[in-house]
Amino acid sequence: MSLDLISFIVLGIITLVSGYLVVASANLMHAALFLGLSFVGVAGIYLVLGAEFLAAAQILIYVGAITTLIVFGIMVSNLQDLKAGGRGVWARVVRNLASFRRGLVPLVAAAGFAILMLVIYRQSLWPAEAPPASGSNLATVGRLLFTEYVVPFEIASVILLAAVLGAVALSRRDDQPPAGSTGQAAPAAERKEGR
């Protein structure tokens, strides 16, 4: 058993367990932090697979930006978790056994998906051994990004710009609060959510 495989298994277990806790943990903030841990695990797997740039990007974007954003969002909006999400997965499944939407059917669907995919992977033929990684692939990724994939790259930048504008426009407080919420004055801190 090579070092690669051992680290893959350890990282995989970290990813899966924290992924499970994202869905299962009672506290919304815990779930967000486990999400970050799961992202770190995925970043480690990228490293094992020889995608150094992607691993760095994963840490930067997912752990550094997305998780932070979600945590920040939870704190700013003062969201308490809903009761249905507050219990463990199994308790919830048992309690809602009869319900179509929150009971056994989603569990069977999700588990069935995983099991079937694993069966399919077992039955399929795979390349026996990967070609050896030829050092760092950072240069290759960079070159591809700015030659062959330059158009998607530019489009991605436009999407990001649009998303930024959209997020700012959405979270900007209007000067005139809507008639229904005149009682709640917006705290100054909340004006800065637009990223």
Binding site: G19, V22, A84, A109, A110, L118
Partner: peptide
Amino acid sequence: YVLGLAALLFSLGLYGVLTQRNAVR
């Protein structure tokens, strides 16, 4: 192995999307 891990992670996510009521989750 990689694909299997991805499939497991995907079904965790799928289960979450299907059953959670909290939009953040």
